[in-house]
Design a protein around this nucleic acid. Structure first.
Length: 661
DNA sequence: ATACGATTTTTTTTT
DNA sequence: AAAATCGTAT
């Protein structure tokens, strides 16, 4: 038996022991939110709730896995039947069994953002808008507009007016693209990320027996990071919990930072209105940060108008005040951070207890160079995702056409890998093979070689060879085997010709192969692929060939740092225009959201917090421009304050060590 | 007409 | 770093 009284504080214990019924938990940063949910799940199971009757919605799949792992450790019960993960994962799990009710094949594939961008671009070309208009928005921009409109349930009209007034004149055309995109997805039996949510809601709303089945099954629904849910996700939860009404949502409105994808913290603010009988708990004791860090974070967030009243109390002993470090320019900023990291290492702080946070991926460029130069190992948690890298998508495309021979996007991607096969030939070949009942077997025919230009024939022959190797003896090959075959049949040479870092790319493919072994079938594997971000974050039990230097400094966007903590946190590019990001301020609620982002970054730090910004920045076309410190820092230091009242100290770096600037 | 390589532009955040 | 664009070669 777990000793709940001993392992939890009073606030947490009340939540864990609360009776059935709707529950809202407002949990400040570092207040033991994850711990509370974990113990609540353990408690439910100890009181004889079957694991398969519990639903746990989290922000990342990793978070779910970690919590469930801890539950198993606590109570020693097998809970593999408990459904937990992101909304997209949960939706996928349910739709795999039920999507035929909505007119999909159950083997639908999930599009990642690249797939979706390409398909939208195709729609734009097919409709002739690319030639007709001087400046028609690109696929990714149209994709953002469509997605935002779906996730907020605002019309395309409203989205354009609010976020892209520049394209307002093209409203009809954009709506036409959106509708064509929707039709094409359906024809291809594909769902994008938004479709997973939309279709789950539609399934539950339009099929009473399905709603009955799941709402009766899930006697307890628990949700983490509720402040970052959107309307559709909130409705899905309401539906799934509609029978038993045991819905527990946990979140912190001050940490709502995903409004760009439709998250609306009105969900958490209005929860008591939707569930008038909801019990409301607050976790306000912060175990993570020193009072100095917390003081700064609290002083910052009170500048937001829209928020729940709450007060985070520190329990830790006093430490040092956060430190503001103006640097001359970007290079000096990188030098300072690197220098300070070396000092921290010398003081005995482990590398993985140090993080550098920033607003946008490209803010880390100079620092990466400097860390590399000084030989400090680091891990980047930003930028392109593992499964979206070209070589990963190339190889998995072979698997995709094996599983679904009518996967147009995969076919075209593969064909264009070969010499003298471009967009036009790939289209022609696709038209030819997709007209057949078995597109894969026509690859062997003579006509296959002839349906494109003569110059393309050698490449197509090579493609045919690879397909034949994969289908050799008509054995169904595992992902691992397919990767090996693809590499052996010429892809390795292709990589060598195209990239400079082939070793690491081949290593990626090996990792992909190992990772695929965790799945029961190639279909399962492909089905989940698009929902994963990177292997390291998703699967920590994977075997790395080399774990020697797993101790690394973390470089991450603020968004990806959510929920994590480090002893020392550096926040770089703290200049106005970068945080808040100038572009984000176009939205009327942008400034408050950016302040929440600043708050999230600051509350990641346990002991030490550094804000750095360059005073001069070289911008293309404008030469050197002067930058001011972020308004979020300025507002902490009103002129009425003396130096001791200020929540931070300031350091002057004198750096004459380089002549680059 | 098509493919490809060189050049230029462009980066918010993510399932 | 990656994608879009442009010019040249086949």
């Amino acid at each position: 038996m777990v000793n709940y009284e001993k392992e939890l504080n009073t606030e947490q214990l009340q939540v864990v022991m609360a009776n059935d019924g709707p529950i809202l938990v407002i949990a400040g940063a570092g207040s033991g939110k994850t711990r509370t949910i974990t113990y609540r799940v353990a408690r439910l199971i100890e009181t004889n709730v079957a694991p398969e009757c519990i639903l746990l919605a989290t922000f990342t799949n990793k978070a779910a896995r970690e919590m469930l792992g801890r539950v198993e450790m606590l109570i020693g019960v097998d809970i593999s039947r408990l459904l937990g993960g992101t909304f997209h994962h949960i939706a996928n799990r349910i739709l795999r069994r039920k999507s035929h009710l909505l007119g999909y094949e159950n083997n639908y594939s999930i599009m990642d953002s690249e797939d979706s961008r390409q398909l939208i671009n195709a729609c734009i070309s097919e409709l002739g808008f690319k030639d007709k208009f001087e400046k028609f928005p690109k696929g990714n921009v149209v994709g953002d507009i469509i997605s935002f409109s779906v996730n907020t349930e605002d019309s395309i009209d409203e989205v354009l007016a609010r976020r892209h007034p520049y394209f307002y004149g093209l409203i009809n055309e954009i709506a036409e693209v959106a509708s064509r995109y929707r039709i094409r997805k359906k024809e291809l039996n594909m769902m994008d990320f938004d479709d997973l949510l939309l279709n789950l809601r539609r399934l539950l709303v339009s099929n009473p027996p399905v709603l009955k089945e799941y709402s009766e099954r899930f006697s307890h629904v628990l949700v983490d990071e509720y402040q970052d849910t959107n309307v559709i996700q909130a409705e899905i939860l309401d539906l799934l919990a509609s029978h038993h009404r045991n819905l527990m949502v946990v979140g912190d409105d001050s940490q709502s930072i995903y409004s760009f994808r439709g998250a609306n913290f009105a969900n958490i603010i209005r929860f008591p209105e939707r569930y008038p009988d909801a019990k409301v708990f607050k976790l306000e004791t912060n175990y993570r940060s020193t009072p100095e860090i917390l003081n700064l974070a609290n002083m910052s967030i009170v500048n937001n108008e829209k928020q729940f009243q709450k007060e985070l109390r520190a329990v830790r002993a006093g430490g040092i005040r956060p430190i503001l470090v103006p640097a001359m320019h970007v290079i000096q900023q990188a030098n300072f951070v690197t220098q300070r990291i070396l000092e921290l290492i010398a003081e005995g702080i482990p590398l993985n207890e140090i993080a550098v946070l920033y607003r946008a991926h490209y803010h880390s460029m100079e620092l990466q160079m400097e860390l590399t130069r000084r030989g400090i190992p680091f891990e980047i948690r930003s930028g392109i995702r593992f499964f979206e890298q070209a070589h990963i998508k190339d190889v998995t495309s072979f698997m995709r056409i094996m599983v679904n021979p009518f996967d147009e996007l995969a076919w075209k991607r593969l064909l264009m890998l070969y010499r003298n096969v471009g967009r036009v030939s790939a289209n022609r070949i696709w038209k030819f093979v997709s007209a057949e009942t078995d597109p894969l077997s026509v690859v062997a025919s003579d006509n296959f070689l002839k349906c494109a230009a003569k110059t393309a024939a050698p490449g197509l022959r090579k493609f045919r060879e690879t397909i034949e190797n994969i289908n050799y003896l008509s054995n169904k090959k595992s992902p691992l085997e397919i990767i090996e075959i693809v590499l052996e049949s010429g892809y390795r040479q292709y990589l060598e010709g195209k990239y400079t870092d082939i070793e690491s790319r081949e290593e990626d493919l090996n990792q992909l192969g190992n990772f695929s072994e965790k799945f029961n079938s190639i279909e399962d594997f492909l089905g989940e692929l698009a929902l994963l971000t990177n292997i390291a974050a998703e699967e920590d039990r994977i075997y790395y060939t080399d774990r020697r230097d797993e101790d690394r400094v973390i470089l991450s966007t603020i968004h990806q740092a959510k929920g994590l903590e480090w002893l020392s946190v550096f926040m770089i590019w703290c200049s106005d225009g970068m945080i808040p990001l100038a572009r984000a301020l176009k939205d009327p609620d942008g400034e408050e959201e950016e302040r929440r982002l600043f708050y999230v970054a600051a509350t990641r730090a346990k002991d030490q917090l550094y804000f750095c910004y360059p005073m001069l920045n070289y911008a293309r076309g404008m030469g050197n421009t002067a930058l001011s410190p972020s308004r979020f820092i300025e507002e902490l230091n009103p002129s009425s304050f003396g130096a001791t009242e200020r929540p931070y100290d300031q350091w002057i770096v004198n750096d004459d060590s380089n002549s680059w600037g």
